[in-house]
Write a protein that binds this DNA or RNA. Structure first.
Lengths: 101, 101
DNA sequence: GTCAAATATAACTCACCGGCTATATGGCGC
DNA sequence: GCGCCATATAGCCGGTGAGTTATATTTGAC
C-alpha cells in the first residue's frame, strides 16, 4: 500500500502521531486507540509494509518506531501545491492592502 | 471524503497535477487519463466533495480548477514529521562527518 | 514443563471503492 | 423542435479495507 493510502485511514495517522513521541509497544497503542488489539496489529502491518514504521522485538514486547522516510515523497508531491495556496494567500493579502475595509 | 482519502487514489492525484497547469475541461482530462469519461467524472465528484476542485460551467463545457486549500491541512499534519526526517538526515550527516569513509 | 502475557494471524462480515456500460441531462446549432 | 455534444448519474460487479472474534505463536515466570 502506498504511503498516501496508508495515511488515508485516521487510526493510522493517530498511530504515527503517537509514535512521534517515541517508541511504543502494541499494548500502549491499543490502550489509546479505541479499536481492538488485532485491529491495531493490522494497522501496524500496513504501516510496516509502507515503510512508515519499524519493529524492534524486546522480550515478548514489540516496540514500534516511526520511520518517516516515505512521508518525504508525499511532502515532495505537495510541494508545488504549497506555492499554489500561498499564491492565493498573497493575492488575498494584496487585495486587502489595496482595498482596506 | 477527507483530503487524505481523496489523495489515496493515483488518478485523483494525476487530476490535481493536471489542474496545476490551469483550468481543464472534463474532456481534456479524459484525454490524458486512460480511464473512461464516467470514471473521470466520478473522481471529479470526489475531489469536489473534498473541496479540492471547483467547477465553472461555460456553455456545455464544465471547467475544473484547483482549489488547494484542503491540502493545507495535510501539509500541517506533515509538519512535525518534516522535522523528524530532517533530524534523521542530520544524524546521518553528523555521523558521516565524524566517521568519514 | 506449564501457565500467562503480548502480539500476530486466520477467518469472517460488511461496507465501500473504482472500474465499466448504459442512460439521463443540459446547452448549442440548425 | 431535433439532433449532437459534453458531462453527470445510475446501476452493476469484483476487489479490497477495516472491523470483529477466535486461535496460534512466542517468550518469560515459576
Amino acid at each position: 500500500m502506498s504511503a498516501y493510502a496508508a495515511l488515508a485511514e485516521p487510526h493510522r495517522r493517530d498511530i504515527l502521531d503517537l509514535l512521534r513521541g517515541g517508541e511504543r509497544s502494541v499494548g500502549e497503542l491499543v490502550a489509546r486507540l479505541d479499536i481492538s488489539q488485532p485491529g491495531v496489529s493490522k494497522h501496524l502491518r500496513v504501516l510496516r509494509d509502507a515503510g512508515l514504521v519499524t519493529v524492534r522485538p524486546e522480550g515478548r514486547v514489540r516496540r514500534y518506531a516511526l520511520s518517516p522516510a516515505p512521508l518525504a515523497e508525499v511532502d515532495a508531491w505537495l510541494e508545488p501545491y504549497r506555492a499554489a495556496w500561498s499564491a492565493r494567500l498573497d493575492v488575498l493579502q494584496r487585495h486587502l492592502e489595496e482595498h482596506p475595509e
